[in-house]
């Protein structure tokens, strides 16, 4: 087996560089919709640079888990990202694992983040961990069901193979099954990336936080790694959604022209998805914590319907 080193480097760079931009873009668009000027699109880069340069305060109650977690989070997000086709049909690490491994890697990051929330002996961290793990658990079946729908129609859990399957004859573009699965997956995306109506990434109220609560004790470069990891995770999930359900314009070979076109397509799809996310955030209030399961079970039902429709409606 040969690893395509340039592709790995390129995609790593893409993940690292594109993810803050995506966050910045979403924030900016949200502000625009609310009639605010909002922060610059580039602000997340400045934030990260600022965090990296800052001194750190580490709680004296915390153990090595606290120091270890930022690395785990960043690396799992990156590794997961390398398994997703972004610009080309084949992901650089496609052979190392498909969508199941991707979910697993993200779950590993979450596991450690939740531990790090408990580590400094503060209730806010525990609050975040407890809620995050609950919501993640309920999101999981819906996500798996949606993934299964795609994987079953493609005959593989390997993302590259799923994308390739879409280019084979007999594959219908965005049929009912895919549409339903996409809807389910989109809800899961909102939950996994901590967006309204599940979590509010912009809140200052510790008591309502989920994701942010676990980060409260972090500062300096660890905070940068955590924020960056979360941004990469968001990019990865959005790329997954974009390319799994709309496998259009993926570069078939490594010529600059094809790659450039692929990049444009990718950017376009991400922008569309980001716009959808912004729209949802703009028009919704955050759900009550114990209504989130209702939303996610709706996603699960959608995904199940998607699966049923793979063989009932054809």
């Amino acid at each position: 087996m040969k690893l395509d080193l340039p592709a790995i480097v390129a995609q790593t760079a893409l993940l690292l560089l594109l993810s803050p931009l995506l966050s910045g873009l979403i924030k900016n668009w949200k502000a625009k919709l609310q009639n605010r000027r909002g922060a610059r699109v580039w602000q997340p880069y400045f934030d990260l640079a600022k965090f990296l340069r800052k001194d750190m305060v580490v709680s004296e109650h915390a153990s090595w888990i606290f120091n270890f977690t930022p690395y785990v989070l960043l690396l799992t997000a990156l590794t997961a990202g390398l398994m997703v086709p972004m610009v080309t049909a084949q992901a650089p690490l496609g052979l190392f694992g498909g969508v199941l491994a991707l979910v697993g890697m993200l779950a590993l990051g979450r596991f450690f983040m939740a531990l790090a929330g408990l580590d400094p002996a503060t209730t806010f961290g525990g609050m975040g961990s407890s809620r995050e793990m609950t919501i993640a658990a309920i999101a999981e079946p819906a996500m798996m069901m949606a993934i299964f729908t795609v994987a079953i129609t493609a005959g593989s859990t390997n993302l590259g193979q799923i994308v390739l399957a879409s280019q084979r004859p007999g594959w219908e573009f965005f049929d009912p099954a895919h549409a339903l699965a996409f809807a389910a997956m989109f809800i899961v995306l909102l939950a996994e990336t901590g967006r309204i109506p599940v979590d509010n990434p912009a809140t200052h109220l510790e008591l309502t936080m989920i994701h942010e609560a676990m980060l409260l004790e972090y500062s300096g470069r660890y905070l940068a790694f955590m924020e960056w990891g979360a941004a990469i995770k968001q990019l990865v999930l959005m790329a997954l959604l974009a390319n799994l359900f709309f496998p259009l314009g993926l570069a078939a070979d490594a010529t600059p022209a094809a790659l450039g076109l692929g990049l444009l397509w990718f950017a376009g799809k991400l922008l569309a998805l980001a716009a959808a996310v912004v729209l949802v955030e703009f028009t919704n209030a955050k759900l009550r914590l114990f209504r989130v399961p209702d939303l996610l079970s709706a996603a699960f039902i959608l995904a199940t319907l998607a699966l049923v429709s793979t063989f009932l409606f054809r």
């Binding site: 790593t12 690292l16 930022p70 690395y71 960043l74 690396l75 799992t76 990156l78 590794t79 390398l82 690490l93 052979l95 190392f96 694992g97 498909g98 969508v99 199941l100 491994a101 890697m105 994987a151 005959g155 593989s156 859990t157 390997n158 193979q161 390739l164 399957a165 790694f225």
Partner: peptide, 23 residues
């Protein structure tokens, strides 16, 4: 199956280690 899913825990673990220079 020929085009089914694949996974390599060893590969993922070593890949993560290889990315360690980034942080």
């Amino acid at each position: 199956t020929a085009k089914g899913g694949t996974v390599s825990t060893l590969g993922l673990a070593s890949m993560a280690l290889c990315l360690l220079p980034i942080p």
